[in-house]
């Protein structure tokens, strides 16, 4: 994919979700991470980097700054599960009486 990231639309963006991507941003900068989601309003990408020792690094790249997106890797089961449960509330309260 080169240029026009904000114009792709939801059906194209979801094809990149959960994959490890390399994103060219601004002027000659590059970021990598697992794509958690894309904001359909601003085309901003939420990239996640699971660091070995410390916590998880979350990087939000503004849609207007995205120059190029390249898929690097498909997720394995473990990564897919971690991405699935990210940002979810710790537990869902049961509203039934």
């Amino acid at each position: 994919m080169e240029g026009g990231w904000p114009l792709l639309g939801p059906l194209q963006w979801v094809r990149y979700v959960k994959k490890q991507v390399k994103v060219k941003v601004g002027r000659n900068e590059e970021v990598r991470g697992w794509l958690f989601t894309v904001d359909p309003v601003s085309a901003s990408m939420v990239l996640v980097d699971f660091m070995e020792s410390e916590g998880t690094l979350v990087q939000v790249v503004m849609g207007h700054a995205v120059e190029e997106v390249q898929v690097l890797k498909e997720p394995d089961r473990k990564i897919a599960d971690r991405l699935q449960s990210m940002f979810l509330p710790p537990r869902t309260s049961i509203l039934d009486p």
């Binding site: 979801v14 979700v17 989601t37 904001d39 359909p40 939420v46 940002f87």
Partner: peptide, 12 residues
């Protein structure tokens, strides 16, 4: 697709 993407973004 739009609603799933947006919900996840808002959670983030």
């Amino acid at each position: 697709a739009r609603s799933v993407l947006r919900e996840n973004f808002l959670r983030c």
